[in-house]
Each structure stands twice: as structure tokens, then as C-alpha cells.
């Protein structure tokens, strides 16, 4: 074994030296956006037509997609027309549209598919007159299923785009 090799080994040992030890990164669990899909604080009352709770439950905050598709179905179209008119009346809100996929697919492809779905909803809402500056999209791929069984009943609910409202702070 040459001296050169010894030198390389020494460097390697030093490189290893600074590795973090197991307790070094404290963990307080998930926080922040996207953790549960929807921020449940400050939803207001469902009886208030200007509230987020009203939008989520009575307008309908989500639309569903067929396998591998990002096409807006007739049912989705009806929901999105309602979303658009609500957003046009309630201009203090902006929205992040979350695109999701079911678990049947690779992680990367599902991220791209979720982006397509979110964008399809965004484009529809813009076409209905909602200002593009009020809408942002995010994909969660298959990372945040709503339903956790592994059959089509659950998959159908998970292939979704959810319009998540927040008071407009400029997106």
C-alpha cells in the first residue's frame, strides 16, 4: 500500500469525523404549510357565505381526476365555476391550488402529475376571470393522500386538486 493511499485514508477519516451524531438534529415533528393539506385555523362559520368554511364545504374546495389525467371533468367543471364566482366576490382571499396523485405511480412522476392537475385548475379559474396573481399552485404528488386504503375507492378521492384559501397577503 503506497504512502499516497495512506494519505487518502487519513483524509477520509477526517471527513467522517464531522458527521452529525444521532441526537444532533432535534425533531419537533411536522409544521408549516402542506402538513395536512389544509390549514384548519380561522375557517369561520359555514353559515357565513364569505367564510373559508363555507367555501370548503358548500362551494366545494376540491375536484377529482381520472387515473393519470389532468382533464377537468364535467363534475369538476361545475365545482370550479362555483369556486371562480366565489373568488370573484371575495377578493380578499388568494388561493394555493394543491395537486395530488394516488399512490399508484413513482414519486417523481406523481409530483409532475400533481403539478399538471393543479395547473389545470388554475388555468380554469383564470379563464373564469380570477386574477392570476391570486392563484398559486403546488404539487404534493402522492405524499399527502386523503384516504389511506389501497383500492380505487380511496385512490379516486386522492387524485385531487384542492383550492386552499388564505387571506390575501400577495402571492
Amino acid at each position: 500500500m503506497s504512502h499516497l493511499t495512506k494519505a487518502v485514508l487519513l483524509v477520509a477519516a477526517l471527513g467522517l469525523a464531522a458527521c452529525s451524531s444521532p441526537g444532533r438534529i432535534p425533531d419537533d415533528g411536522p409544521t408549516g404549510p402542506g402538513v395536512n393539506g389544509i390549514d384548519s385555523s380561522g375557517l369561520g362559520s359555514v353559515s357565513d357565505p364569505r367564510s373559508i368554511a363555507y367555501f370548503n364545504q358548500l362551494v366545494g374546495d376540491r375536484v377529482l381526476f381520472a387515473v393519470d389525467e389532468s382533464t377537468i371533468s364535467p363534475e369538476a367543471r361545475a365545482t370550479l365555476v362555483q369556486q371562480a364566482s366565489w373568488l370573484l366576490e371575495n377578493t380578499e382571499y388568494s388561493a394555493i391550488i394543491e395537486g395530488h396523485a394516488d399512490e399508484q405511480g413513482t414519486r417523481e412522476y406523481n409530483l409532475a402529475l400533481g403539478a399538471r392537475r393543479a395547473s389545470a385548475v388554475q388555468q380554469f379559474l383564470i379563464a373564469q376571470g380570477v386574477a392570476a396573481s391570486r392563484l398559486r399552485t403546488v404539487t404534493f404528488g402522492k405524499e399527502r393522500p386523503l384516504e389511506i386504503c389501497s383500492n380505487e375507492t380511496c385512490y379516486a378521492q386522492n387524485r385531487r386538486a384542492v383550492t386552499v384559501l388564505r387571506v390575501d397577503t400577495g402571492v
Binding site: S20, D27, G34, E143
Partner: peptide, 12 residues
Amino acid sequence: EFLTDSSAIVLA
């Protein structure tokens, strides 16, 4: 050894 906490989703 952990390299991040779990406050945000991390992937791949």
C-alpha cells in the same frame, strides 16, 4: 444519523 428534522416533507 439524522440530517434534518421532520418539520417539512423531504424527498429523494
